[in-house]
Design a protein around this nucleic acid. Structure first.
Lengths: 225, 225
DNA sequence: GTTAGAGTTATTGTACCCAATTTGCGGAAA
DNA sequence: TTTCCGCAAATTGGGTACAATAACTCTAAC
């Protein structure tokens, strides 16, 4: 009787699988994404595939060309600059708003996540890849908590799309121990600012955190080629 | 979001028509949008209709419920607060970036648009509705020019979605002569700041311009019920 | 050797079909 | 009267067939 959510449909699962593979860089940028191939691989018809591709296009993960199909999005340096600029503006704003609205439970969550990031080396991961995946997930959780604390659902949705960039581009940062220390320092600074309700400092630290991450990424790309 | 080659398909036309009618408030918020009805009205099958509805959902114009179809989005007060907050942040940033990047041609365009807004009353429109539509279009052009001058295409795309709010909500502002004068003042202030390359002032004026528009809108909604 | 053109192939876009789910109504029981 | 159950109508979701468009190849002419 209530007008509530509705359970996720099979098509949602198709989209999530496609999205996951795109984010993890499973398809080379610029490669064609033929519908029939996905339909065969996932055991469904082209109909849900087309829906998933349309959603991926709206999220900026693929480009759609009329009568020519979908292509895995190619991220040039300009794209990364645009994305990090938007992240800095939007997450900086989210941090500022969170400073005056965050509750104790969310602060606890941030504290736990920050600690997990600091103590990750002691966990003894089976492989470097496993550890980086853990760090990426924890970091994303830290940021998501602050975004949620800003109380603006549209802001959260927007950032959800913007941050949808292949994992390859997000992982560089976490490979250097020094960068991880700097990141942890920023997390602590942001957390302190949020605890003190200091909106300006929260915004400044968050923006600097993101711009620093951008610079490390670009530097890494330059060195790797 | 196709950018480059290929001809627009019939489905694109279907989406544009649907989107136009949604933005102009042709469908009451909360009303069900039955696929078959659109298919019959536009003379196509349900397939392109479903694509159009999916795109409209991604743009936030309609809400999609699994197995229950699409519903014209209902904009509550909270939604408007969220939207204007995001506009203030993003367009404020766009103005700041534009201050250091805008070229002479874009400044001329802004000058022309500002003048057109100031001299609109002398045009002698056939009806009040015609005049308001003209003002809305010119104002949108002023803002779009600044956003384009920011040079961040993703920022432009994001704002294109955020601003996609039924015309009904955007028109209130332009009905009062006093509010139009204030709006013109803000446009001139922003233009001056852009000419002087003053990023801080451009951002501040743009943010205040938007927040003022928000307050007028909310006040109007309160009075009208 | 290069290019223009026609025919062929591959892939997308749309129409239509049937299954699955939801919703509204009506009747029966408490 | 109210509530619950079940059936029926309406509508969406996914599959399939076919038309439309673009890409490709091969041939022929210059």
């Amino acid at each position: 009787m209530t007008v509530e959510p509705g359970q996720p449909t099979p098509a949602d699962a198709v989209y999530l699988r496609l999205r996951r593979r795109l984010i993890e860089g499973h398809y080379p940028p610029g490669s064609r994404l033929v519908e029939e191939r996905f339909a065969h691989d996932l055991g469904v018809s082209r109909t849900p595939i087309r829906q998933a591709l349309a959603r991926a296009a709206a999220a900026g993960l693929v480009q759609l060309f009329p009568n020519r199909g979908a292509v895995a999005r190619r991220f040039a340096l300009d794209d990364l600059l645009e994305i990090y600029e938007l992240r800095a503006v939007l997450e900086g704003h989210a941090a500022a708003r969170a400073a005056t609205q965050i509750d104790a439970q969310q602060l606890d969550a941030l504290e736990a996540t920050a600690s997990a990031l600091e103590q990750a080396p002691a966990h003894g991961f089976a492989s470097r890849t496993d550890e980086v995946h853990f760090l990426v997930a924890q970091s994303a959780h830290f940021h998501d908590t602050i975004i949620a604390a800003s109380g603006n659902q549209r802001l959260a949705a927007m950032l959800g799309n913007v941050v949808n960039v292949p994992l390859q581009f997000r992982s560089f940062y976490w490979y250097s121990a020094e960068e991880r220390r700097i990141s942890n320092f920023f997390h602590r600074s942001i957390l302190t600012a949020l605890r003190h309700g200091d909106a300006d400092r929260a915004r400044a630290m968050m923006q600097e955190h993101i711009y620093h991450g951008r610079d490390v990424l670009i530097q890494s790309l330059r060195e790797e080629g």
